[in-house]
């Protein structure tokens, strides 16, 4: 197959996504600056100030922040600054954490991948396997049960399952470390290194990975099943059978290839939004990723970090969706670059 880079499509898509990004920045500016200033009559500098910082008085701090972030400037100057800072990733310095904001965010980001990405992959495997299982048994009891469980998983609150798991297997039976800190130290209390560290990490992550996968496969399973059923009853499958193609190829080559497309597509979208949904698992198992960062920032009213983390999350979504736009045509030949 000849493959040429679809330049026009590429440029068009990128421009669209940049516009979206700018809209999001404006939206953030609206909720972080405009609403507090004009609706609540509050100086946003208040958001950035810790209760005490190096023994300075609060008003001195607020003034300093005003100067540092230009919060005493006219609003349109602030606006320009804000847009510029976001686009160039200049998030400034968090007085509350006493660290640059970008460093805080960069520390949190990779933590998510340990659990979220493997669980996404695992749930895709469940979704496709169980979806096909049901599709070829369409209408039978095993299909109904399988499908019912998949629907059930849409509605099981993840945090609920996680705390039950933690309470039974962690607290009561003591089979699993109940938080990541506990997982990464040896019984004597010394921090683990090397392979032991990795083993500890795996032992700790395996349960949340499986639980999250079991809670997330439902929608894609239903997609796989319904497209599988459609495919099983389609005229091309009848035609393939008449052509004498062995049943195994009909199911595992043709039906499967057609049925998994929507599930794979959906996995891409879920990948984009995976961090957004990570708050619960991170909070319950106590590891410090983006979700937990957002959550702690909300609990401590740290609007600065909250806004920046939210921006980074949106940016991540946009980038992933952009990448997906280019991958889809490779998965489904019917999708065109247009």
């Amino acid at each position: 197959m000849r493959f040429s880079v679809p330049w026009r499509y590429l440029v068009k898509r990128i421009i669209e996504r940049i516009i979206l990004l700018i809209v999001i920045i404006n939206f953030l500016f609206l909720i972080i600056y405009i609403i507090p200033i004009y609706v609540a009559h509050l100086n946003p500098a208040e958001f950035y100030v810790p209760l005490s910082y190096k023994g300075l008085s609060r008003s001195t701090e607020v003034e300093a922040i005003d100067r540092e972030f230009g919060l005493n400037q006219p609003i349109f100057v602030q606006y320009i600054d804000y847009v510029k800072n976001m686009l160039t990733f200049h998030f400034g310095y968090s007085l509350i954490y006493d660290e640059p904001v970008s460093k805080i965010i960069l520390q949190a980001l990779p933590v998510d991948l340990i659990i979220l990405v493997p669980s996404l992959i695992l749930s895709t495997v469940f979704a496709i396997g169980l979806g096909l299982f049901s599709a070829v048994r369409f209408g039978r009891l095993s299909d109904s049960i399988n499908t019912f469980f998949a629907i059930l998983t849409y509605f099981i609150p993840g945090f609920w399952v996680l705390i039950i798991f933690l309470q039974i297997f962690g607290f009561q039976l003591g089979l699993f470390p109940t938080n990541i800190a506990q997982a990464l130290i040896s019984p004597s209390g010394a921090p683990l290194h090397g392979w032991a560290y990795i083993a500890g990490l795996i032992k700790f992550s395996i349960a949340p990975i499986i639980i999250l996968a079991l809670l997330a496969y439902g929608v894609r399973m239903a997609l796989t099943r319904s497209y599988g059923v459609e495919s099983m009853g389609s005229s091309y499958v009848t035609y393939l059978r008449a052509k004498g193609i062995p049943e195994r190829s009909v199911v595992y080559k043709h039906v499967m290839r057609n049925a998994i497309i929507p599930a794979i597509t959906r996995t891409g979208i879920d990948f984009a939004f995976v961090i957004a949904g990570s708050v619960f698992v991170e909070d319950i198992f106590g590891f410090y990723g983006m979700g937990e960062l957002l959550y702690r920032s909300a609990l401590t009213f740290n609007v600065q970090i909250l806004g920046d983390a939210f921006y980074i999350l949106s940016l991540y979504v946009i980038v992933v969706l952009l990448v997906l736009d280019f991958i889809y045509p490779l998965i489904d030949p019917r999708v065109k670059y247009e």
Partner: peptide, 15 residues
């Protein structure tokens, strides 16, 4: 052999 009815969707779309 068979020339089926409704050839529009008679071929597997992804091969």
């Amino acid at each position: 052999s068979w020339i089926p009815q409704g050839s529009m969707s008679i071929l597997d779309p992804v091969y």
